[in-house]
Design a protein around this nucleic acid. Structure first.
Lengths: 208, 208, 208, 208
DNA sequence: GATGAATGAGCATTCATTCAT
DNA sequence: CATGAATGAATGCTCATTCAT
């Protein structure tokens, strides 16, 4: 039989993703506590009851948001490192610029701020995030630095420290933008900052 | 039998500071919304009613916390810049190391994370914080960079960009520590990082 | 074993009226401030939350009570005047007696006292009540008097003054009954008083 | 020794009266529940603690207000009746007009509305008020009517009913004025209404 | 599956009352 | 006597969660 499925049934599979997307938007903007499930539901085009059909409670929804949103982003970068040939500083720039790019458009880029705000209230989730995102991306950059050192392109520095020094500013600028965009009278362009940061970095990492 | 303890004491002068301190602790730890005034009161050794004796409502208490704790720290740094003589990179180090120092001990150092988390929910407060803290400290560092450029010590860069590049990593590391201290398996020493960051910076800012 | 009773039932249509009725009862008895929403809810057979499902807050509930209960009563009287034929004093009696009648039975008759008590605390509501009830009923009686004067049945008096003189005693007696029923050792019969008042009035209004 | 007493000691005797006066003002305006003791104290020029020096609690203060305010007013009228000679309708006018007069100026004239509002919450006080004011003034007028009937000046009516018919309108108009003065677009002059009411009455009471 | 009416625990806020000073 | 800091019970309101439909 090729009777088309009724409208709502076809939507069934899409529901969780739509709810997660709505929740991400609101959580990112207002934080966990200040977000009402009613609003999440409305934004997802369903009612409150439906949210509970797919998620046990607000906390589980929050966890799902983080889990679903966060992981895929890194895999792309990891393959980039894996397959890279050529100067390591070129790769560094590739990573930083594509990251800055994604930060400006991806809806998932609000997660950093959200996790920073809620980590202490969700220790289990914080651990997940740290493992899957923070440490992993730190490793990624540490890896690039290490290889650059091995190839003689960079001077000898602690790669993990360097990784922090590479990632922190970009995250921070993004987070600031999110938090204070309405009142900062001197907004930064994320990509311009990435470029500036990169220049500073490579000169700082070069042999003296 | 000794006289029974009085049920309470009049300590009008001490109360506000004690309440602010308690609020700072809890706000920093759990965020604004997740902090109950009952707990603030208990931690301050008073009852909820007393909190309302000194602060109009929860939001005003929040503002007071920010006002009282952040601003003084900056004033110290500003005089340091004013009175400085000698190499600008030395001043930069002085500022960064003393900042890192304070971050490790001062109870006020939780404010950054708090403001990041709550800014969008308290636009008015966010503006206050941006004006009084963010922009002001950015200016401070931009000033140091500018003078370093003028004296020929640093190469020509956009001072405001540089200021962001100087401040962001330290703030970010602190914020990360606060948020993920329980689950980060690779904790960082704030002062060591400050040193590392400084080295990278000065080499990055030097003429090539 | 029979099926356990459901914890609640969906009765969207019935709820608002039930809540208004409960609120009317309690407001009339204790006044606005002394009435707890918890009690209103209990009397309506729901919980506090449900009250807020239908009314934005306590004040809006109060307004709804007034709106729903008083206005309909007046409309009936207005049609009576419109359609009247015959002696105006007969109409006067009809109005007064039916009014007294309703006062004795209608649950809405507690509103006068309530409004008198709360008017200064709810200026907006007071205005609504004055426009929709006080002035309107005054006009109604002024109208009857005017026509009686035109027809030569009554002597020339200021109709608005007369209207006040007609309505005030009945309202006052009702209000007194409500307020002091428990302690007045000389209770009045409302309908008997209406009759007495009417007799006095028509003789007072007649040509000398 | 003729050393003058210290300032505050001289005030001691005046305090209760001042507090009662302040409380009367506020209770009359906002009702019992909506009046804060803090405001009473401020208006009386003392602090909250002082109120409790003279009155056990808010209820007792309320009772004192009613008791102190209410009684004296009637005594004057009673002597007037006692000593009257001449036409009873003249006395009636004297009573009504002086009453209207006092209503317009005496601060105590807000008590009626207050008692109407709070009677059911203060049954004991209601009884006191009914006995000392309501019934007593009703008797006063019933007395005048009775004597007028005996002297043949008025036709035979039930004097207690008539007393209600005499007093109710004046009280009602006053109460209305108080409650709705801010929004009534057709304000009445109390004395003009008293005159109108009197004219209606005497014609209504005259033999046909 | 989906809805949204109903729940009830939780919390901010108020204010009469107390009592150390 | 007088003050006003401190209390704590009371209550309006919110919103995550449940469940009858």
């Amino acid at each position: 039989m090729n009777t088309p499925l009724p409208r709502w049934q076809r939507r069934k599979d899409a529901r969780p993703a739509e709810i997660i997307q709505a929740a991400l938007t609101l959580f990112s903007d207002k934080g966990f506590a200040a977000t009402r499930l009613d609003d999440v539901a409305k934004l997802a085009g369903v009612t409150k009851g439906t949210v509970y059909l797919y998620f046990e409670n607000k906390e589980e929804l929050f966890k799902a948001v983080v889990r679903e949103t966060v992981v895929p982003a890194l895999e792309f970068a990891e393959t980039l490192v894996e397959e890279h040939q050529g100067a390591w500083s070129d790769l560094l720039w590739q990573l930083l610029s594509s990251w800055a790019e994604r930060m400006e458009h991806a809806t998932s880029s609000g997660i950093s701020r959200l996790m920073i705000a809620e980590a202490t209230n969700f220790p289990e989730l914080a651990r997940f995030y740290v493992d899957e995102v923070v440490v992993r991306s730190r490793r990624l950059f540490a890896d690039v630095i290490s290889r650059g050192i091995q190839s003689g392109e960079f001077r000898e520095v602690d790669p993990m420290m360097a990784a922090r020094a590479v990632t922190a500013p970009l995250v921070m600028i993004k987070v600031w933008k999110q938090s204070f965009s309405l009142c900062d009278t001197e907004p930064v362009d994320l990509k311009a900052f990435a470029r500036f940061h990169f220049d500073l970095l490579v000169q700082g990492l070069r042999h003296r």
